[in-house]
Nucleic acid binder design. Structure first.
Length: 568
RNA sequence: GGCCCCAUCGUCUAGCCUGGUCCAGGACACCAGGUUUUCAUCCUGGUAACGCGGGUUCAAAUCCCGCUGGGGUCACCA
């Protein structure tokens, strides 16, 4: 049977949110399947009973769905009208904890054929030997002592209920991994040891489960991070022992922080700790964290605060924590398309030119799905460059139509910034769209651009320098113009950006001054500062009443200022 | 420490397989100009790299060896 359909899989373990590195692996896995007209399968590796949780499974599925990395087979889920997953080939279930029988069947077969054997050492014994090996500066290898226990004794001890693990007997031949990215990698038999395939608790280890599942689920191509390269000979050994075919392998280079350290959740904790120290904050600013806990956390490098506490703390300190997980990027206001584009490019190069001769860098999921191949994947590790990602995100936002931008911004604020969703309707955001699109790199940045509109008219604080430059300098010419302008704007019928803009132009001409001479005083009067979006949009979003109120307040403010300085 | 992987501008990379077209191209960042009512956008230009040392060759970023450096891994985690 020449069934050559490509099946790739992504197999996260549900022990937290989806890490950005995992997202990249999933994306390229997906791309490899799509580019070959195949299927992308999702499997949940929950054999670690201690650390796995339902909640993080849901979180990971949602992270993938949000990114648009849709899985053809796997756990079923509805997301924004799409149905993901399913089991058309009947290869499920897709949760490893539900597949124990399958693993046990394979393990039994291996034992019966003498390719695996039980071992009775206690974890502590092995740990001691391991420490010795490290002290002696050599690699640790299991000494195979359980292999010499006679068959009848083994059976007797198992029957007596003695705790044991099962180890695979590794072959004496070298094993070569034919990697699609790195080429052939051969590991000599001296490097192997008889690793554990079933734990004391009866659950298979990762190595056995992953190998059996990939074979039974018909996976033809395994795409994963390079940290697994050393594991691959073990998996090949299991395949050979069980008579399974070896799939294609592709090990992706790893992603690091700018400083070369591993990107990890702990980075967020580190950042918060440093900020607290820098601020010389000694008492917890959050009621949920007691003083004892706070002090302990601050003292102990290894102690971490839970994610939501960290976020609160970041809010109090007015700092931004580094984004590490997909959810972090989502809440920071990154767009899936920009994130996918950047992630794909981090390690993969389409090797295609644009019409103007520059390299193709901006592309969508369709392009990836149509053109991905391992040929363009580099073999060296890369550093995650948030600045470039930010640039991609900004470009993506700027390229959105006003309507599309208003919609994503509104949807985002419903989830992440209620201050905006409560103050502005989607229609308001549409008015703001042209002003905000080119001024923010993330949706979260949008708030900074329209901050002036989020405060009450009476809370506008006037920046001294700006007031001086725009209103007081040149014998108060700015102030005079502002007063004149106030009377005319108050009677403007159509309070839209275009109409306001036209009116300002007209006003400048009839008073024989440049645009800046009137725009800046008005801008300072309504926003308190010299910087804001185009005047039409700035005034339109505030509304006529607000504009008039703010101008009056400003005139009063300047009046008080000049009086007091005259007297003083 | 053993084993494995990797090595081009600050960062991501093209070029390397099939040596010459490369005094090394693009992107982000940075710097300088320009457009603009402010800011942003946008436009133009600029700075900036083949880790080191040996070979092979008429010729090496490209092939070979060594060194150095970075990373991974050495769990009853995945």
């Amino acid at each position: 049977m020449a069934n050559t359909e490509t099946i790739t899989r992504f197999a996260p373990s549900p022990t937290g949110h989806l890490h950005i590195g995992g997202a990249r692996t999933a994306l390229l896995c997906w791309a490899q399947a799509k580019a070959n007209g195949g299927k992308f399968l999702l499997r949940i590796e929950d054999t670690d009973q201690q650390r796995s949780s339902q909640a993080s499974t849901r979180g990971i599925l949602e992270d993938l769905a949000w990114l648009g990395i849709d899985w053809d087979e796997g756990p079923e889920m509805e997301f924004e009208g799409r149905t993901l997953g399913g089991d058309p080939r009947d290869v499920g279930p897709f949760y490893q904890a539900q597949r124990l029988e399958l693993y046990n069947k394979s393990i039994r077969q291996l034992i019966e054929e003498g390719k695996a054997y039980p071992a009775f050492e206690k974890p502590e014994e092995l740990e001691a030997k391991r420490k010795e090996a490290i002290a002696a500066k050599t690699g640790y290898k299991y000494d195979r002592s359980a292999l010499s226990i006679p068959l009848d004794e083994r059976i007797a001890r198992i029957d007596a209920g003695e705790d044991h693990v099962v180890r695979l007997r590794m072959p004496d031949e070298p094993i070569t991994v034919h990697d699609q990215i790195l080429g052939d990698v051969t590991v000599k038999p001296e490097e192997f040891d008889d690793f554990i395939i079933r734990k004391r608790d009866g659950f298979p280890t990762y190595h056995l489960a992953v190998t059996v599942d990939d074979a039974l689920m018909g996976v033809t191509c395994v795409v994963r991070g390079q940290e697994h390269l050393i594991n691959t000979p073990r998996h090949i050994a299991i395949q050979q022992a069980l008579g399974f075919a070896t799939p294609e392998y592709a090990h992706l280079p790893l992603i690091f922080n700018q400083d070369g350290s591993k990107m990890s959740k702990r980075d967020k904790d580190k950042t918060a700790k440093k900020a607290v120290r820098d601020a010389k904050m000694e008492h917890s600013p959050i009621s949920e964290i007691g003083h004892e806990d706070f002090a302990g956390w601050l003292r102990d490098k290894t102690r971490q605060l839970p994610a939501d506490r960290l976020n609160e703390l970041a809010g109090v300190l007015a700092i931004e924590l580094p984004e590490i997980e997909v959810e972090d990027f989502r809440s920071a206001g990154y767009l899936p398309s920009a994130l996918n584009n950047y992630l794909a490019l981090l390690g993969w190069n389409p090797k295609t030119k644009n019409e103007d001769g520059t390299d193709l860098e901006h592309f969508g999921m369709d392009y990836l799905a149509g053109n991905f191949s391992f040929r363009g994947v580099g073999s060296s590790p890369s550093k995650f460059d948030r600045v470039k990602l930010l640039s991609f995100n900004g470009d993506t936002i700027a390229a959105l139509s006003d309507e599309a931008f208003a919609k994503v911004w509104h949807d985002w604020s419903l989830r992440h910034d209620h201050g905006i969703s409560e103050r502005f309707s989607e229609t308001d955001l549409l008015t703001l769209a042209p002003a905000v699109k080119t001024r923010c790199k993330t949706l979260r940045d949008g708030r900074k651009v329209i901050g002036f509109a989020l405060i009450h008219d009476c809370d506008v604080e006037f920046d001294g320098k700006s007031v001086h430059k725009a209103l007081i300098k040149s014998d108060g010419k700015g102030l005079e113009l502002l007063k004149l302008f106030r009377d005319q704007i108050g009677s403007l019928e159509d309070f839209t950006p275009d109409a306001i803009e036209a009116m300002v132009k007209c006003f400048a001409e009839s008073n024989e001054v440049g645009m800046g001479k009137i725009a800046q005083p008005v801008r300072v009067a309504v926003t308190g500062a010299a910087v804001s979006p185009a005047l039409g949009q700035t005034l339109a979003i505030l509304g006529r009443d607000s504009v008039v109120t703010r101008i009056d307040r400003c005139v009063e403010h300047v009046g008080a200022m000049t009086n007091s300085s005259n007297e003083g």
